[in-house]
Design a protein around this nucleic acid. Structure first.
Length: 342
DNA sequence: AATAAGGGCAACCGCCTTTGA
DNA sequence: CTCAAAGGCGGTTGCCCTTAT
């Protein structure tokens, strides 16, 4: 026994929208709004369409300020950065690109950008990270300090130093912090569209999914690695681990374990200007009693194109219906979360 | 010129989440 | 608190156009 259909499929028109239908829908919404009820809208607007279809048509095509056409390098960069961190969360990615719809970005990624990354970028244009360890090397035994990693790498990358081979202008110039609207992620967030800096989890010791980034009740922190649901009454939280487990022996800072894939590090962070106008790099990792790491400052947004490539590869080879990026394992529960302030 | 193959994109499908009665 | 309806989202499909043979 399946779910009841949202509309009478036999009596609704499907397929491409005609200009007449477009103008009817547009006119109706401009005059009356959506009324908060898409299901009832088509009838009121005199359309023989499913409400969902109307919604999609409006959101993806008819609503004002929709941008169509070529994506800029800047947009490419943002898409890649976010994809590297959160995977195919198109609506979130779209929220960072004014005028672009999730559908647009999804199509663009699947048809062009992915190919661009996988096929057109010559190896010589891909970044060579100085800290990238070989598979025979032992991973760092302890959590690294900031100075050895993010900030210097970021500067080097931006300056096209010997650590990095300059990328073509059309690929990925120096990256900058990206924020995501907090309202998307947790019931503890406000309804405003305040943006939160968007960080990759670096804690190798926990069962982690970079897709999870929740503002906590402490507004200065983000929690990674676990889906946190807090009951409104007592404030207690249960956490459901969503990521695939990271093997203990693969706990190097720059190496995540996603399924069977080693992932080179990538990171997003936030610059902090000091009084001299220069950037201040004071990343400090502090382990809390509960095993969570806190980073007090971080300055670089950085990722390795290999990360994206491997994500693409793992996606395409995965049988997981959940887009192959991260599977939700609801049977796993954990107490650990990783907190970052910003 | 005809046809096949590939690419691009709008639209649909179905699942999950949210909302409100 | 429960449950159904609606909204939202990501994955997939299928049509149309372009390019290659």
């Amino acid at each position: 026994m399946g779910r009841a259909p949202c509309c009478d499929k036999a009596n609704v028109k499907r397929g491409p929208w005609s200009p007449e239908e477009d103008s009817k829908l547009k006119e109706y919404i401009e005059k009356h709004g959506t009324g908060g009820n898409w299901i009832a809208l088509p009838q009121k607007a005199g359309l023989r369409r499913c409400g969902k279809s109307c919604r999609l048509r409006w959101l993806n095509y008819l609503r004002p300020n929709i941008k169509h056409g070529e994506f800029s390098d800047e947009e490419d960069r943002i898409i890649c950065s976010l994809y590297a961190n959160i995977g195919s969360r198109w609506s979130i990615i779209a929220s960072q690109l004014p005028g672009r719809t999730d559908n647009d970005i999804k199509n663009y990624w699947n048809t062009k950008l992915k190919r661009k990354l996988m096929g057109l970028l010559p190896a010589s244009h891909q970044r060579i990270a100085p800290y990238q360890h070989s598979s025979t090397q032992n991973p760092p035994s302890s959590f690294p300090s900031h100075s050895s990693l993010s900030s210097s790498i970021y500067r080097d990358y931006c300056n096209n130093s010997h650590y990095y081979i300059p990328a073509p202008a059309s690929s990925f110039p120096c990256l900058e912090p990206i924020s995501v609207p907090s309202s998307n992620y947790t019931s503890t967030s406000t309804s405003t569209t305040t943006s939160l800096p968007f960080y990759q989890n670096h804690d190798p010791l926990v069962n982690v999914s970079p897709m999870q980034y929740y503002p906590t009740t402490d507004s200065s922190m983000l929690v990674f690695g676990s889906e946190t649901s807090c009951s409104s009454s007592d404030g207690s939280c249960s956490q459901v681990s969503l990521g695939r487990e990271i093997k203990q022996e693969e706990t190097g800072f720059q190496n995540f374990m996603f399924g069977d894939q080693h992932m080179n590090k990538f990171m997003l962070s936030q610059g902090n200007m000091n009084h001299d106008g220069g950037e201040e790099y004071v990343n400090q990792w502090t382990e809390k009693p509960n095993g969570c790491f806190f980073q007090t400052q971080q300055t670089a947004l950085d990722y390795d194109i290999e990360v994206i490539k491997q994500l693409i590869s793992s996606n395409s080879s995965s049988n997981n219906s959940n887009n192959g990026y991260f599977s939700i394992d609801e049977n796993k529960t954990g107490e650990k979360g990783v907190y970052y302030n910003y």
